[in-house]
Design a protein around this nucleic acid. Structure first.
Length: 428
RNA sequence: GGAGAGGUGGCUGAGCGGUUUAAAGCGGCAGUCUUGAAAACUGUUGUGGGUUUACGCCCACCCCGAGUUCGAAUCUCGGCCUCUCCGCCA
């Protein structure tokens, strides 16, 4: 959420930012409602002031056992009535204004390329070389079937389409991957490990920006109005909702493994086969709470922490800076990490590293006591996948396959695979 | 799930219709004293919003939301959360 005061004073800049994202919001209406509301509130507060004065007089007269209080009570009553006539007008505007405000996106950083669509994104750098084998590569579906490590058919029987059932070495690989990532981020990169609830309430979802915009893409438990986490970003960022940090406690860095649940509504027909777009996937997430001055530097280091996962897994990837049209609603700047899948011949988005500046912090009311102003100021929040598993598994299978269809395990992962150097079909 | 108790400022804790603009203590900050520090003493000390060139003034906030009243931290109703006991349970 942007500061309404900021929008008021920088209307043109905000309008341009919204336009750069390819959105069309009635900012004029928002500003008009805001002005209208302030006028009404000022009027109402003036009346309240008078009423409070009268009440005080009445109190003193009653205590002094003086007569005449009755007349004043009548006056006060009249004021109360006037106030209650204004109240509904304000209450009509408030929710409209709040909703409009929640739907204004963050303003992109000046370094973000202006444009819309993937083609406007900017490739920052690439790492690793795609394998050039002298045999025919199998895609991840063929490999999964060959090795017997993923059973999509039975997953559909158990739940429905686009769910995954990892079996045997596949399940083992999944566990190895997130343990490896958690160890890397806690031991080498200094993040604190957390294991949060998988269900969160509406306030938490609103604070990180999933609501109200993306409600249809979330799994919701109607009896309790709880949501299944679409990413660990939600529970982990909300750890500090309505809190004030000491400046010396920043930056605060967390990493968390959770399953992630997404309905993927509106993406029917896209990536319907395999692991690319599934309703439940595993992810290790990185979340930071930092001072405003440091947030863009922290974004770069967050990105490097995520990149190292792919480097150690020996997966070729590229870093993409998203353009204004592609940066997510709550973010001011975002890098995607895309791993190369050589058989599918596609770049797979396995990580998204974003700086949300004070956008989430304002919604979530997360502050720190600044030594500069000695007042509570909003922190900046960042998060990134470190990394998302299902798609990383695609890249891992396709890049590390051998001519016989077995998968060689990268060195960094060996300690997590009981020393097994490859995954093979146990029945062959 | 059932019964009871409770949720007050950074913390402890009083107040249970109008001298409360929320007592007192602890903590924090500033000053006096001191070579320096501690102690002691003095002062100060929340958040959000509106308005003002500014000093300031005003409104709201005692878990959240409605209500009663001229007036609510205090009374009523609904919700959320915490603790204790019971039940159920991996």
């Amino acid at each position: 959420m942007l500061d309404i005061k900021f929008i008021r004073e920088n209307a043109d800049a905000v309008k341009k930012a919204v336009k750069d994202r390819g959105l069309d919001l009635g900012l004029g209406t928002l500003l008009k409602l805001d002005a209208e509301k302030r006028k009404l509130v000022a009027e109402m507060e003036e009346l309240k002031y008078k009423k409070n004065l009268l009440s005080e007089q009445i109190a003193q007269m009653m205590l002094g056992q003086k007569a005449g209080a009755k007349d004043l009570v009548g006056d006060a009553k009249a004021l109360s009535q006037k106030i209650s006539q204004l109240k509904p007008k304000v209450e009509e505007i408030e929710p409209k204004l709040a909703e409009m405000l929640l739907n204004v996106p963050n303003i992109c950083h000046k370094s973000v390329p202006v444009g819309s669509g993937r083609q406007a994104n900017k490739i920052i750098r690439s790492w690793g070389k795609p394998p050039k084998p002298n045999f025919n590569l199998r895609n991840h579906l063929e490999l999964a079937e060959h090795l017997g490590i993923i059973d999509f058919t039975r997953a559909s029987k158990i739940t429905g389409s686009n769910f995954v059932l990892f079996m045997g070495q596949g399940a083992r690989l999944e566990r190895a991957l997130y343990n490896f990532m958690l160890d890397l981020h806690t031991k080498k990169h200094g993040y604190t490990e957390v294991f949060p609830p998988y269900l969160v309430n509406r306030a938490s979802m609103t604070a990180t920006g999933q609501l109200p915009k993306l409600e249809e893409d979330m799994y919701r438990l109607k009896d309790d109005d709880y949501f299944l986490v679409p990413t660990a970003e939600v529970p982990v960022t909300n750890i500090h909702r309505n809190e004030i940090f000491k400046e010396e406690d920043l930056p605060k860095c967390y990493t968390a493994y959770t399953a992630c649940f997404r309905r993927e509504a509106g993406s029917y027909g896209k990536d319907t086969r395999g692991l690319t777009r599934v309703h439940q996937f595993d992810k290790v997430e990185l979340v930071k709470f930092v001072t405003p001055e440091s947030s863009y530097d922290e974004l770069e280091s967050l990105l490097k922490d995520a990149e190292e996962v792919l480097q150690l897994l020996e997966l070729p990837y590229r870093v993409v800076a998203l353009c204004t049209g592609e940066v997510s609603f709550a973010a001011s700047k975002c890098y995607d990490l895309e791993a190369w899948a050589p058989a599918s011949k596609t770049w797979l988005e396995v990580s998204s590293c974003s700086n949300f500046t004070d956008f989430q912090a304002r919604r979530a009311n997360i502050k720190y006591r600044s030594s500069r102003t000695n007042k509570p100021e909003y922190v900046h929040t960042l998060n990134g996948s470190g990394v998302a598993l299902a798609r990383t598994v695609i890249a891992l299978l396709e890049n590390h396959q051998k001519p016989d269809g077995n998968i060689s395990i990268p060195k960094a992962l060996l300690p997590y695979m009981d020393g097994k150097t490859e995954i093979g079909n146990p029945h062959i």
